[in-house]
């Protein structure tokens, strides 16, 4: 994939979490290193992000201990805390193979206060999944 502009946060299988850090630490890295908040404040912001997504309980888990959905939520929280105007979710089926992912992503999007745009890049043959999610009938 070509390099993305700086205003894009990407969630993709190729951008995994740091395996030896907890979900909370993976997210807290961003305010800690980018915006130079203190460790305590960074952790607070990361915890708030997980709570907003409804996954506060996964904070102490490390990557190998997470389910695919929990891992995706952590990656999403890390992308959201970057505060970029555009979020790209790249081939979600590769990460969320244990849930009906169009519904799952929609629910998460509804729970966040993110003001940016969310784009999903997926294979054309998965288009039907999104239509089904939009039209439950």
């Amino acid at each position: 994939m070509a390099a993305l502009p700086d205003d894009v946060a990407r969630v993709a299988l190729e951008l995994p979490l740091r395996a030896n850090l907890t979900a909370l630490d993976n997210i807290a890295l961003i305010p800690l290193y980018q915006r130079h908040f203190t460790a305590g404040e960074s952790v607070k912001q990361a915890q708030a992000m997980l709570e907003q997504l409804g996954y506060a309980g996964i904070a102490p888990l490390r990557d190998p201990d997470m389910t695919p959905a929990q891992r995706f939520v952590t990656q999403l929280a890390r992308a959201l805390i970057l505060g970029r105007s555009r979020l790209v979710i790249d081939r979600p089926g590769a990460m969320l193979y244990d849930v009906s992912y169009p519904d799952f992503i929609r629910q998460l999007a509804e729970q966040t206060s993110s003001t940016g745009t969310w784009d999903i890049y997926d294979f054309s043959w998965n288009q039907i999944l999104y239509s089904q999610a939009l039209d439950p009938e």
Binding site: E14, L15, P16, R18, A19, I30
Partner: peptide
């Protein structure tokens, strides 16, 4: 650890997050 981080793209992920 560094070899695994490189193989698993963890370093690329850190760079994407500007860490």
């Amino acid at each position: 650890e560094v070899a695994l981080m490189r193989v698993n793209n963890e370093l690329d992920a850190l760079e994407h997050c500007k860490v």
